[in-house]
Each structure stands twice: as structure tokens, then as C-alpha cells.
């Protein structure tokens, strides 16, 4: 248990969390590995976990009837992955595929949610961290879709 805790205790997502809170999160976490090319989750599946990437790269993908598989974004060591677990109907919006051999920490979404519902202080703090993460990713995505390097017409 303690070993798992050390894997995420320093992550900015959980910065300044109490020892008790970290220990609780450790009970929700499990270490996982995924070979390159394997699917971590698929669109429309139930979002049972959120992840911290410890090593390796993950691609968020979308299957397009004409263009095939499109990579929307890639995530890397240190990144948190997944926020569909936070909101009903708790289902993934994209596919996630390992681009290389990946080491992950998977957190049990249901268990974490239950605690957050009861412990609003922890709920607020974790939600704030996720919100700031989402904002950062949204801003980068906005720049990405602006097509800034395109040839002006």
C-alpha cells in the first residue's frame, strides 16, 4: 500500500493532501502496465477509472468513418488521464491506446466518487485540481484547433 502511495503522493494533482487522504487514495489505486498498441479504454465504455501515466505515452483517438483512426492528443509520463469518471453518465468519449509500453496508476472511480460525495472538502480540492487540468488542456486544444501554422488563404 505504502509503495503505491509513493507513486502518486508527489503528483501535483494531490499536492498538500493530508496523509489520511493519500492513504485513502492508495486504497483506490492499482499499478498497471500496458503493451504498446493495446487499448486502455474505448469510447462509450463505462469510465471505471482515472489514471496517472508513470511511464510511456498514450494516444487519445477517435474512429472516423472516412478518415480512420484520428489521434486527437497524446499524453505522457506525469499526465493525468480521464475525467469522464467525474460526470454522469460516466462513459469514455474517446479511445485511449498505448503508443509505447506504459506504466499506469489506475484509481477506482466509484470508490473515489463515493468519498468525494461525503467529504466535500476533499471533493472540492480534487475537483479544483481537475478543473485546472481541464482548463490547461482546453486552452492548449483551442490553440491546436486554431490551425495557427496553416497557409493563410
Amino acid at each position: 500500500m505504502n509503495q503505491i502511495k509513493t507513486m502518486f503522493a508527489q503528483h501535483p494533482l494531490f499536492q498538500d493532501f493530508s496523509e489520511e487522504e493519500l492513504e485513502f487514495l492508495a486504497t483506490c489505486a492499482s499499478a498497471e502496465q500496458l503493451d504498446a498498441g493495446r487499448i486502455l479504454f474505448q469510447e462509450a465504455q463505462e469510465a471505471r477509472h482515472f489514471y496517472l501515466i508513470r511511464e510511456g505515452d498514450i494516444a487519445l483517438e477517435l474512429r472516423h468513418p472516412k478518415r480512420g483512426v484520428i489521434t486527437i492528443q497524446t499524453l505522457h509520463a506525469g499526465d493525468a488521464l480521464g475525467w469522464s469518471w467525474l460526470f454522469p453518465p460516466y462513459s469514455w468519449h474517446f479511445d485511449a491506446r498505448a503508443m509505447s509500453h506504459v506504466h499506469l496508476l489506475a484509481f477506482d472511480a466509484e470508490k473515489v466518487r463515493e468519498r468525494l460525495e461525503q467529504d466535500n472538502s476533499l471533493g472540492y480540492r480534487l475537483m479544483k485540481r481537475f478543473a485546472s487540468l481541464m482548463l490547461e488542456r482546453l486552452q492548449a486544444t483551442r490553440l491546436q484547433v486554431l490551425d495557427l501554422y496553416g497557409t493563410p488563404s
Binding site: D57, A59, I70, T71, I72, Q73, T74, H76, A77, G78, M99, A140, T141, L143, Q144, V145, D147, L148, Y149
Partner: peptide, 23 residues
Amino acid sequence: VTVDRATGNWQGNVGFVTQLIKR
């Protein structure tokens, strides 16, 4: 290297260049 839009069988990073800075 990162691209805004992945095409073909690009296996590299996808995302805006600012995303590369933190790592």
C-alpha cells in the same frame, strides 16, 4: 516534435507545442 493534427500513421506527439514545455 508535436503536430496539431495527426494524419497518416503518425506515431508521434499530438497537441499544441506549449504542451511540450512542462516535460
